[in-house]
Each structure stands twice: as structure tokens, then as C-alpha cells.
Design a protein around this nucleic acid. Structure first.
Lengths: 190, 190
DNA sequence: CAGTATTCCTAGCGGTGCTAGAGTTCTGGC
DNA sequence: GCCAGAACTCTAGCACCGCTAGGAATACTG
């Protein structure tokens, strides 16, 4: 029994090491730099070991994304909790969202633009993802009016996502970001 | 002189053939299926010929994207021109935008999510891109209020872009698209 | 027709994600 | 304590990718 548990523990640790290595490498050099060979070298095992933990590279990226959902949800919750009034809550949550995306671009990509593989059908992802979504929903609730809250939240979210992705793709000038964010916040807080 | 011009003409035709092949292949099977080997086979030349026309695969994708900008601008202009009133113009332009993205996903990706290579620094792209952007701007102008028109337009655009990309990434249910679009249009037309 | 310039292709480089099969280590019953 | 069998990990390789050097074939010029 004891050796059995030890092996399982070591296996779990190695799995976390893979995810951590993938995450660090992606954050430092982007997802293009994350190859199965480099990952294997990083954890000091051979390539095939990766495939005994994950179905493939996409699944590894999905695992990294899962961590991101938890972080984002926490950041949004903190932003909303510290806001003085409802209008400010929308502004703070929006700022927290774009800041998160800007500071962890690789993580954000894994969460929302790449890796359609598993995360949205898995079990623990919806939990953290739903937490983040709920923060957005509570922020915009006062300004939803007669509209369906879910639709308003999803649309607000789309606005944030669009701002972030277009800016990082070089389609929007970074200098005007605050002005655009103010417009979006204004449209969803009155 | 005549042989010279004939050669130049043939070269230009071959270049268009490359772009057309890339476009067709991307629309039919996605950009992952567009490899330099398949492109070469399609135009019935060897691989290196591609590199005498374009710097690399990214440049080919950029050329495809350029065509897309012109099409999108035309679609938006038509939508705005046929709208009965200003409020309807926003709705129609928004619908035209998302329809374009939905019907030509590969083209849309080349334009707005991939290929940061040349298009935004080139010459003819800004023309067609600016045309499309101007259509959006004119549509939302009546509802801009005191806000800077450019900022409002960019934010509206971001909203559309976010809706499109999140939906295609499987993050938003396709069934609720119209409802979300209505929310966005409402927020940018009053 | 000979020599030159241009065009184009063959072959190959270093890289990718992924996998079959061999080899090694560990486990548990005698 | 030994040894068959199970569990594990590695080496080597597949088919593919974008891209390029260098030579063969073609077309043009005098």
C-alpha cells in the first residue's frame, strides 16, 4: 500500500511539474517556444512520459489554462469587493480583466483563444470559470435594466475580450486603451 | 519589351493563383491545412517558387487578408446604406460584421487574429481597412455623445470582434448570439 | 549558333507532435 | 533470496512542417 501511494504521489508531482514548466516557458517565451522536447528536458524525463500524463500538447495547454481561470476569478472578485459604488465596480472589474490579460498574455491565450480541447467540457474548469463570469455578472447587474443579465454579461465580456485581443494583435493603439475602456464601462454601467 | 511584359504578366497571374489557392484551401479546410507543399502542388510549381513571390507563409496569409478587408468594407457599406434609420444602421452594420466573420472564418482569422506581419504597415490595406472602420464610425456617430468618436468606434468594433471570436472558440453559445448582438447594438445606438 | 542570364527544381536542413518497441527497474509469490 | 511478471521509461524513428542552397534546365541576347 505504501509504495503504491508513494508512486501515485510522485506521479502527481511530475504532472504538476509538467504544467508548471509549460506555464513558465509560455509566459517567458510564448507558446511557440513550448515544444514537447523542451518540456521533456525541463522536467528531466523523455518525451513519451508527457503522453502518459496528457493526451497531447493541447491537453497540457488546457491544464495550464485551468490554473488561469482560478487566478482570473480571484482577481475579478478582489476588484469588485474593493469598489466604492456600483459604477466603480464595473470600472474596477474591467480594469482588472484587461490588466490580467496584459500581464499574462500567454496564460490568457491558453484560456480564451487557443486550446478548445477539454477545458469547457471538463469538471473543475466550469467552477472557476463560472466564478469569474459571476463576478462580471454582479458588476453589470445594476445596469442590465430589462435585458437578460446573462446576455448583458456575455456581451460585456466580449467587449473586454475584443479590446484585449485587438490591442495585442496590433490592431488598436495601446495608448488609447484607457479611453476605450472608459467608453465600454460607461455603456455598461448606466 | 513584349516578352518582358508577358513574363511580368505571367508572374502576376501566378501570384494571384497562389493567393487564390491559399484562400480556397483555408476556407475549405482551415489555415492548418494550408502548407507550402500543398500550395505548391495546387499551383503546379515547386515550393521555392512561393518564396520568389512572398517572404514566407505569413506574407501569403497577409495577402489573403488584404482581399478580406475590401470585402468586409463593401459588406458594411451596403448594410449601412440600406438601413432605414440611424438606429437600424447600427444593427444592420453589426449583423453584417458578424455574418461576414461567421461565413468566412478563415478569412476573418487572417485579417484579425493571425498574420500580424505586414498588413497594418502596408499601403493598400489601410485604405480598405479604413473604409470598413469608417462605416462603423458613421453608424455609431449619432450615439457617440460627448465621447471621442474614434474611441467609441474602436470599442464597438472590439465588442463585435469579441462576440465573434468567443463564439467561434466555443466560449459562447451560438443560440444566444442574436440576443447578445441586440444588447451591444442597444448600448451603442442611444 | 554560342554564351549568358534567368528561371525553376531537386534535395536537404533543422525543427515539430507523436508513437512503436526494446530495455530497464520494481513488485510480489514461492 | 530468487525469479517470473508487471510497471515503467527510454531510444529511435515516422511523417510532417517552413524554408533554402546549389545545380539543372530553360529562355534570351549578340
Amino acid at each position: 500500500m505504501s509504495t503504491q501511494t508513494r508512486r501515485e504521489r510522485e506521479r502527481a508531482e511530475r504532472e504538476r511539474a509538467i504544467i508548471a514548466a509549460a506555464r513558465d516557458l509560455a509566459l517567458a517565451e510564448g507558446w511557440d517556444a513550448v515544444t514537447t522536447r523542451r518540456l521533456a528536458a525541463e522536467i528531466e524525463y523523455s518525451q513519451p512520459v508527457l503522453y502518459s500524463h496528457f493526451r497531447g500538447k493541447d491537453a497540457i495547454m488546457a491544464a495550464v489554462a485551468v490554473e488561469g481561470f482560478a487566478e482570473l476569478a480571484t482577481a475579478l472578485a478582489a476588484a469588485r469587493a474593493s469598489a466604492a459604488d456600483p459604477r466603480q465596480a464595473v470600472a474596477d472589474v474591467a480594469a482588472a480583466y484587461t490588466t490580467f490579460a496584459e500581464q499574462r498574455p500567454a496564460l490568457y491565450d491558453a484560456m480564451f483563444t487557443l486550446a478548445v480541447d477539454l477545458p469547457f467540457a471538463s469538471q473543475d474548469v466550469p467552477t472557476d470559470l463560472a466564478r469569474g463570469f459571476a463576478e462580471l455578472a454582479e458588476a453589470v447587474r445594476p445596469a442590465a435594466g430589462d435585458d437578460d443579465l446573462e446576455a448583458v454579461t456575455e456581451t460585456f465580456w466580449s467587449g473586454l475580450h475584443g479590446l484585449v485581443t485587438l490591442m495585442r494583435g496590433g490592431r488598436l493603439r495601446r495608448a488609447d486603451h484607457d479611453r476605450r475602456l472608459a467608453v465600454l464601462v460607461d455603456r455598461f454601467s448606466r
